[in-house]
Amino acid sequence: MSIGNSPEDERPFEDVSEEARPSIGRALRDARVAAGMTVDDVSTATRVRIAIVQAIEADDFAPCGGDVYARGHLKTLARAVHLDPAPLLAQYDDEHGGRPAPTPAAPLFEAERIRPERRGPNWTAAMVAAIVAVIGFVGFTVVKGDSDNGAKNEVAGGPSPTTKKTASPSAGGKKPTGPKPDPTESAIAAAPQDKVTVQVSATDGRSWVAAKDHNGRLLFDGLLKQGQSKTFQDSSKINLVLGDAGAIQLYVNGKKIDDDFQPGAVERLTYTKGDPQVG
């Protein structure tokens, strides 16, 4: 007969707090099933590729391409299946070494000064110059026609009142009609057909943006603050990565992209010549 604790009482205390907590992928998968959604449904709702959704549900974050993208995907997927993303992000940071430090702005600007990017033609300036030239030519023709007609009626003490004449036929009927187009929109609309032109504007907040040409050469890698914009041009293809796609407005080959990007969503996009289509 033993005195003291029984063998059952001598078993080591089992801390099940961490063991009972499901993995990130398991939590997302269970929430998706509970919401009655398939992987295809989640991919369509979030614009996150099916392969990445499946990998995250299997706790494989390598296809995300880094901690910044993984955290963005987790936030987007959690909201799609009606989960609070904060606990999942905290769990991810605990398991992967903490939240990534933000990229300091100064080194980015320093890098741009050291390695100036090779820019394409400034189509905005060209269009503004063309509009000014046309307006100046029409105005000069009208003034010249009025001067020629008024000179015949000139008397001592100053020119007599004359009735304003219409421009001579040599003006080519180029009298401007209607309001002048906004120079920026005109430049976008006049994007050359033999190139792909992409304008990225941070309209609803700030976002990290990276852009590469068809050779994989980095055109830009930095933070766009709200109100800032960048224009990229290549002979065949522009590859984009948007850190917060919901804050971005895109114009591609002269056309506005009306995709409903979600706030905080990370988007990888490719555009080519012609009608804007995501590659």
Rank of each mutant, 00 (worst) to 15 (best):
G4I: 06
S6H: 14
P7D: 07
P7K: 03
E8Q: 13
E14P: 03
E19P: 03
P22I: 09
D30K: 10
R32F: 07
V33E: 00
A34Q: 15
A34S: 14
A35N: 04
M37V: 11
V39Y: 07
D41T: 12
V42T: 05
S43F: 05
T44E: 15
A45C: 07
R47W: 08
R47Q: 13
V48M: 09
I50W: 11
D59E: 02
D60N: 10
A62L: 13
P63R: 02
P63F: 03
G66M: 07
G66K: 06
V68Q: 09
A70M: 03
G72W: 11
H73E: 00
L77T: 00
A78R: 04
A78C: 08
V81R: 04
H82G: 04
D84E: 05
Q91N: 01
Q91E: 01
Y92T: 05
Y92R: 03
Y92G: 00
D93W: 10
P102V: 02
T103L: 04
P104Y: 11
P104F: 01
P104A: 14
P107C: 03
L108M: 09
E110A: 09
A111P: 05
I114M: 11
R115K: 13
R119Q: 06
G120H: 02
N122M: 00
W123G: 11
A125C: 10
V128R: 06
V128T: 02
A133H: 09
F137W: 14
F137I: 09
V138G: 10
V138N: 11
G139A: 15
D148T: 11
G150T: 07
A151P: 02
A151M: 12
N153M: 02
G157E: 06
P159T: 13
T162D: 13
K165D: 10
S168Q: 09
G172V: 08
G172L: 10
G173C: 06
K175Q: 14
T177S: 05
G178D: 00
K180V: 12
P181L: 13
P183S: 08
A191D: 03
Q193N: 13
A202G: 15
T203E: 14
V209M: 09
D213W: 10
D213R: 10
L219D: 01
Q226V: 03
Q226E: 05
S229E: 13
T231A: 00
K237P: 02
A245T: 08
G246A: 06
G246W: 09
L250T: 14
I257K: 05
F261S: 08
F261H: 10
Q262W: 05
G264I: 01
L269V: 10
G274C: 08
D275V: 15
P276E: 12
Q277I: 12
